[in-house]
Amino acid sequence: MSLSAETKEKLKRARELRGVSPELLARQKENIRIQKAILEGALEPISVPDLAQNTGISSEIVFWHVNALRKYDKMVDVKKSGDYWLYKKK
């Protein structure tokens, strides 16, 4: 669906009134980079520590994003291997 003229106008006003902080934009850019790295690194089933090592991103951050991507249907958990679950891009 395309935006109605009224919604378009409201969106424009909201952008003017509220703006977007540079911190939010930087965080958003960083999140996109992390999720891209995770999805590219999880073409085959992989554990969070291995993903963290391969991407150079801390395992805590990788794990948070893996669960975010699972929730929104972009990744799945495949099976347990040792102490860890393996995840894969959907």
């Binding site: 669906m1 935006l3 109605s4 919604t7």
Partner: peptide, 23 residues
């Protein structure tokens, strides 16, 4: 959540009933 929104308009674009009210 307004302080986390980038006001990209994606939600309004996808809404089938045009119910997003940014103001």
């Amino acid at each position: 959540t307004p302080d986390q929104c980038t006001w990209c308009g994606a939600c309004a674009n996808a809404c089938p009933v045009d119910c997003i009210d940014y103001l």
